[in-house]
């Protein structure tokens, strides 16, 4: 059981006010507990939590490089096995480290079947280096390397489907969650850690600085992403989706309009075509995962 009073991620870290990933770190550690070794990839969280000599981590923690966290974790896990030790190995990396530069090491570690949990805190761009696009950046988001302009509507590609990629590796447990749903997050992290073999949890972690909203709105943004169907919370065991968070879906516009990274879709004029494309993404998600709460008596369509 998760001990919600446990604090293994200490005060004094240098994250921005209202930081989604900082909250993710706290909640992950509540679920993981003290008998955990954390391997971090280079990124915002690594930097804001460990400027020498000020570490925020109260568990054994290691950072090596940007792209090798899954490989380092493989070595840690092998060493623990050889020594007959019981600590759990948890990797925490951002979306750049996970979707892009660390992909090779992650694929190798999942294919080899190490007993570890890989957690991606997904804030949908390279925030540490100044908000550049990553493979996790959603369609049409403005970043410093996918700027909106006269002939651009921002990021040209939809978000890479990382959970599907890792499920295809035969991962016994794959889940998505959000900092906006703390209990869901802690439950999934706990389940991933308890499941033997390589497990993957992707945590949607809104970034006020990178997305362009006030820090007090982090939970609101996280919830809207889920409620619009743009980020689906699901759980997948041995390749089968076993649980999905159902919602009374809101139009994507409610999520988009509160963020500067999508401001170009509304000003100077509304870009109906692009908003419709994003809505279509949400609609596809809704259909694929069946997230829509259906009314018991469907409203009958009038004839003709």
């Amino acid at each position: 059981m998760v001990d919600k009073t446990l604090e293994l991620f200490d005060c004094g870290h240098r994250a921005c006010g209202g930081c989604g990933p900082a909250l993710a770190a706290r909640l992950i550690m509540k679920a993981a507990g003290t008998d955990t070794i954390v391997v971090s990839a280079t990124g915002c969280m690594e930097v804001f939590s460990t400027p020498y000599p000020e570490t925020a981590w109260k568990v054994p923690w290691i950072h090596s490089l940007f792209e090798n966290a899954a490989a380092v974790a493989s070595g840690v896990e092998a060493a623990l096995k050889k020594q007959g030790r019981s600590e759990k190995v948890v990797v925490i990396g951002g979306d750049g480290a996970t979707f892009d530069i660390g992909m090779l090491c992650i694929s190798g570690a999942f294919e080899r079947g190490h007993d570890f949990t890989y957690i991606c805190y997904d804030n949908e761009a390279y925030m540490n280096t100044g908000i550049q696009r990553s493979g996790a950046t959603p369609l049409d988001a403005h970043t410093t390397t996918s700027p909106a302009g006269k002939c651009s509507t921002g990021n040209r590609r939809p978000k890479k489907d990382m959970p599907a990629i890792l499920a295809a590796h035969g991962a016994p447990y794959v889940a998505t969650t959000s900092i906006a749903y703390p209990n869901d997050l802690m439950q999934k992290v706990e389940r991933a850690i308890e499941t033997k073999g390589p497990c993957y949890v992707q945590i949607h972690a809104p970034c006020p600085t990178g997305w362009g909203y006030e820090g007090d709105r982090t939970m609101v943004m996280g919830k809207l992403a889920v409620e619009t169907g743009l980020f689906v919370l699901f759980e997948q065991t041995d390749g089968t989706v076993t649980r999905v968070k159902k919602v009374m879906r809101k139009p994507v516009e409610e999520y988009l309009k509160g963020q500067k990274r999508f401001a170009h879709l509304f000003k100077p004029t509304r870009n109906e075509a692009e908003i419709a494309r994003i809505q279509a993404t949400a609609d596809r998600n809704a259909e694929k995962f069946g997230i829509d709460i259906k009314l018991k008596k469907p409203v009958e369509k009038p004839e003709g």
Partner: peptide
């Protein structure tokens, strides 16, 4: 423990993790 990695980069990274774990 023999780790058959997918690249030399991971080979040495895995060694790094193992040494850090003692």
């Amino acid at each position: 423990e023999y780790i058959t990695v997918e690249s030399e980069f991971s080979a040495l990274s895995a060694c790094l993790g193992a040494v850090a774990a003692g």
